[in-house]
């Protein structure tokens, strides 16, 4: 029964839709409506119920991408993906972070992470969300988004780096660092 299967994944799909729409609830609901109908019409494609989660997320990501393209709400390609050489250069430029502060407000940090996710480039946001939050394998995400696995890896690295830079704890650390250096 389609509705039963959808119901089991509804919350995860909704929260993902909400992040794809940067927290706009009406847009997320609109997206969910379209995803549910599309999935319902293509339910016969799903051969194994174990694959339902990945299949629903694929439908969600592709529906979202189509909507963005059709609505031209965002530029066609927002980021330049890195080739292997550029990715290696970026990896090599990695710097060990300072030890985290002992005392900080986790609830506030969670809010800040939400804001930081919404501020990310959409291409980076969807990858870090699918891999780090929803727990999909990078290979699965590559299939979902129809991009090479290496691109998933480089987007993921950049997304994590940007999130870390935007979190308040790191801003505080950078301030200290600047003061020390200055």
């Amino acid at each position: 029964m389609f509705e039963e299967v959808l119901s089991g994944h509804f919350d995860a799909l909704y929260r993902t839709a909400l992040r794809l729409c940067r927290g706009h609830e009406a847009d997320a609901e609109d997206l969910m409506q379209e995803v549910a109908l599309r999935a319902f019409r293509q339910f016969h494609e799903l051969r194994e119920i174990e694959a339902a989660r990945s299949w629903f997320f694929t439908t969600l990501m592709r529906t979202h991408l189509n909507r963005v393209r059709t609505a031209k709400r965002h530029p066609e390609i927002a980021i330049d993906d890195l080739d292997d050489t550029a990715f290696e250069r970026a990896l090599e430029a990695w710097q060990a972070p300072d030890a985290p502060d002992r005392v900080f407000d986790r609830a506030r940090l969670a809010d800040q992470l939400e804001a930081a996710l919404d501020a990310l480039d959409p291409a980076l946001r969807e990858v870090v969300w699918l891999v780090d939050v929803e727990g999909f394998r990078q290979r699965e995400v590559a299939t979902m988004l129809r991009i090479p696995e290496g691109t998933v890896a480089s987007r993921l690295y950049r997304a994590r780096r940007e999130l870390r830079e935007r979190l308040p704890i790191d801003r505080a650390q950078r301030r200290h660092r600047t003061q020390r250096e200055g």
Binding site: F10, D11, Y14, R15, L18, R19, E25, M32, R106, L109, A110, L113, E114, L117, V128, W129, D132, V133, G135, R160, L163
Partner: peptide, 11 residues
């Protein structure tokens, strides 16, 4: 990120 990410349930 996994630990701090917002996970609201659908209304």
């Amino acid at each position: 990120i996994e630990r701090l990410a917002p996970r609201p349930v659908a209304p």
